[in-house]
Design a protein around this nucleic acid. Sequence first.
DNA 1: GACATATAGTTAGTTATGCAACTAATTCAA
DNA 2: TTGAATTAGTTGCATAACTAACTATATGTC
Lengths: 146, 146
Amino acid sequence: MSGNQFKRGELYSFITGVASTAIARRLQKNFKQHGIDITIEQWSVLYHLWKQDGQSQQELCNATFRDKPSITRLVDNLEKLKLVRRVASAEDRRINMICLSEAAHALRDQTMEMANQTLNEALGGVSTEEIEMCKSVLQRVYDNLK
Amino acid sequence: MSGNQFKRGELYSFITGVASTAIARRLQKNFKQHGIDITIEQWSVLYHLWKQDGQSQQELCNATFRDKPSITRLVDNLEKLKLVRRVASAEDRRINMICLSEAAHALRDQTMEMANQTLNEALGGVSTEEIEMCKSVLQRVYDNLK
DNA sequence: GACATATAGTTAGTTATGCAACTAATTCAA
DNA sequence: TTGAATTAGTTGCATAACTAACTATATGTC
């Protein structure tokens, strides 16, 4: 294994083992401390619904890079929490449109504020240029594999 | 929410939702296609044991950035697969030293080759400098939060 | 119209994660 | 030296992930 390949292995280890969980764990803890009982995964679905309400589960799969069973269960749990409801589409009855409840709308500002705080904390000492470059690299990795 | 903060939200989404799973999924698929029935998480533990055999579970926690119950269960499953065994330390009987079996040693070259192929594929069009920069950013993120 | 194919979503089974509470062994201090 | 605090590891519970197999609706072709 060449030196460079070893570094790539380390990057793999880092991407899958650290960066993907450290921010999530911190954000989860902040939610909990503020009495907000949703998981980060649930929040990431709400995040995309706040951008556009009424998306289908398939659209949420694409947006969150999850598979269909994962979204089915996240929506199940969000429904239990009365944060979303499934509304059958009139045009295509295979489709569930996922619609935010009033409670979910109310969560937006509160959690977005915490997310920003956490991300500012996490990204202390990281410049905007570096953030952009990371995004670009991660996008290329994703495109290479999809 | 300012423009920059929105970009940070997108980065969060990307880090937790894409980069952390795309490479892992591809590597998992490659393992399966070659008849290697271990999970990526199990592989990531073996990866650190190949670097140094006989580490304690706590050392594996630190190396893989997982908590103790996660390592307990990964070691449980690796033991079921007869890839490692727990050996009680003579000096400190609280400690399990995790030791690789012959079968696990044999897996090393085969899976490392696949990992390198997958990472080369994933990192196509990404320069060594960019990889280093990403590692540096992810390290700073981790340090900021730990 | 009827049958093949594709698409949206669900269910079952296994593995993994985080948290909290626990046991057992070790260390430190009065 | 005994009793408190620390450290290593395990167990229980809830949530989430992927794969494979499934149902139901829609589309397209003969």
